[in-house]
Design a protein around this nucleic acid. Sequence first.
DNA 1: CATATGTGCAACCGATGGTTGCCCATTCGG
DNA 2: CCGAATGGGCAACCATCGGTTGCACATATG
Lengths: 112, 112
Amino acid sequence: MNVTVDDELWSAVGDPTRRRMLDVLLADGGGTATTLSGQLPVTRQAVAKHLGVLQRVGLVHVTPSGRERRYEVDEAQLARAVAQLSAVGATWDARLQRIKRIAEAIQRGQEG
Amino acid sequence: MNVTVDDELWSAVGDPTRRRMLDVLLADGGGTATTLSGQLPVTRQAVAKHLGVLQRVGLVHVTPSGRERRYEVDEAQLARAVAQLSAVGATWDARLQRIKRIAEAIQRGQEG
DNA sequence: CATATGTGCAACCGATGGTTGCCCATTCGG
DNA sequence: CCGAATGGGCAACCATCGGTTGCACATATG
C-alpha cells in the first residue's frame, strides 16, 4: 500500500523550471543550455545545473558537437516518470474513493 | 499548450515527506503533528512545518480541540492536485506520441 | 498544585535553486 | 593566421527549504 515512488525521478520533474525545460525540449526537439536559457527566465548557468540533474536521472541525454552540447529528452525515461505520476494519482484517487464510500455507508447507517 | 500547473500545489505534493504525510492522514483519517511524527522518520517540528505548507495550499485543514490540533486531508483539494498531476502526465504523453508519429513519418519518407 | 504531554518559536545546519564573475575552447571573419 | 565573438565550465556567493535541537508555553491529569 506504500506509494513507493522513485523519489529521485519524482523530484527531478518536481522542480517547475525543470518541467518547463522538459516542455521546451519536447517542443523544439532538443536544445543547448544557451538556447534553453533564452526561452526561460533563468540564466544559462541555472539551466546547466538543471540539465545536470535531468541527465543524472536519465531524463535527457547529451550529444557534444563542436563547441556545443545538444540535449534531448529520453522518451522512455520520461514515459516512466509519467507512469509514476499517474501511479501516485491513482493511489490517492483510490483512497479518496474509499473514504467517500465509507462516509456514505456511515450516513446510510445513521439514516436507517 | 503551456502546462500551466499551479506550482504551489505541485510543489506541496512534490516533497516525499509531505506525500507520505498525506498518505498517513488518508489512511488514519487525520492526525496531529505528534501522531504523524510517530509514523514518519522525522521530528514533530519537521512535521509541523510540512503541515503548515499543506495547510497554506489548502490540502489539509486543522481543528483545534483542547491542547491538540487535529489535521485532516481536504479531499476536494487533493482531488485537484491529482488532476494536475495527471494533466501534466497527459501533456507529456501527448508530446511523446506526437514525436513518435513524426519519427515514423520521417522513416516512411526515407524508406519510400 | 505539580507534573506530564501537545504545540509553538527560534537558532542553527546542509542541500539546492539561483545569481554574478571569470576562464577555457571553438568557431568565424579580416 | 590571429583576434574577436560565442558556447560552455567552474567557483563564490546568497536565499530558501527541509531537517534538527532546545526551550518556553498551554492544557490535561494525578
